[in-house]
Design a protein around this nucleic acid. Structure first.
Lengths: 192, 192
DNA sequence: GTCTATATCCGGATAGAC
DNA sequence: GTCTATCCGGATATAGAC
């Protein structure tokens, strides 16, 4: 692993953090280069334009999600644990200064974004929705969850509320997220 | 109503639209002044700084919400109608190029915002939560809704999912919002 | 692969004329 | 109350040296 690879991944890491903190228009190249101890030109070398950087960043986040969820999809496991993992992940991200998820961070600028970024974003949310639907289905089959109706519909309201919850976290803090998680558990028939 | 008042309110109107479209950092004074046929300086006359403008904009939106909801709070009415009004309002806003609500638009930049704007935002979301909780309570009392547990918790998940739904609207379009609305209705025991 | 230096543009904001 | 003119800082991006 040479220096270039290292710088490249550090840029993506820092850019992800900034995106989730401040959105697409909320950070500059200096916010990345300064803490990394490199110059703006170094970023342009790895990613010619800002949209190239964003594209790489979405793919990277997608890849992380894939790794985290593939084990469950392939071999089965506790649905309850998967759900709590989602809650935990969301809470940790918020606490670590990443209160806006990638999709949310891009939402504000969506129609200015190039087509390929929109596609990448679409695939990302699609995969998340499918994973959550599967968790709900498996959880019901295994008797961990108790709910009626369409698992896909349930997945939509949960996924949407997690995104909205991140926004409300900013305004009302951690307590609100815990109340949201409690409500979701309660609606899945999980005694707490 | 003289010219100044008119310009002032037009600025707020246009700024609201831009905020909900692109977020705090996503628009400039030119985006406001050009379509209004005035110069940037005119905006600075009415609102010395950008945060002054944002503050006025939140208050204005809050006022609109207050007017829309006060009748229900004071005299009672159909809770179902109120809920459908919320759905309709959200969908119309999305379709009219306002896919991000004020809270969401500010979320990305929240910790850069001055204290008074944060307060205004807090009051806004508080009032929304209280209104929705009341709608759910009244709806259950009147037999329009059927759900168990805490109405405030239900309000949180619904409010959060509406905000998140707006973000997902960008990625997956109107169909997703309709599925979200259906799911909420179904979880409130409303036959469709 | 990373640097320095620079180009180009656009942002919010202010001063002062009308 | 709105204009013109201007300031100043910061943004993305490029050219060419090392």
């Amino acid at each position: 692993m040479n220096k270039a690879v290292d710088t490249r991944s550090q840029i993506i890491e820092r850019a992800s953090e900034l995106m989730m903190q401040r959105g697409f228009n909320g950070f500059s190249y200096r916010d990345i280069s300064e803490p990394l101890g490199v110059k703006n030109a170094a970023i342009h070398y790895h990613f010619p334009s800002k949209t190239d950087l964003i594209h790489a960043l979405i793919e990277e986040n997608h890849e992380v999600l894939r790794r985290k969820t593939s084990a469950f999809m392939a071999y089965g496991g506790s649905a309850r644990e998967q759900l709590e993992g989602l809650f935990c992940f969301t809470l940790e991200q918020c606490k670590n200064g990443r209160p806006v998820c990638v999709v949310g961070a891009l939402a504000a600028d969506y129609d200015e974004l190039p087509e390929d970024i929109r596609r990448a974003n679409e695939r990302f949310t699609d995969d998340t929705g499918k994973w959550l639907t599967r968790v709900l289905e498996v959880g019901r089959e295994q008797g961990e969850f108790d709910f009626r109706g369409d698992a896909a519909g349930k997945a939509i309201i949960i996924a949407a509320s997690m995104q909205g919850g991140r926004q409300l976290y900013r305004v009302h803090g951690e307590k609100l997220l815990h109340r949201l998680f409690s409500q979701i558990r309660s609606e899945l028939g999980i005694e707490q």
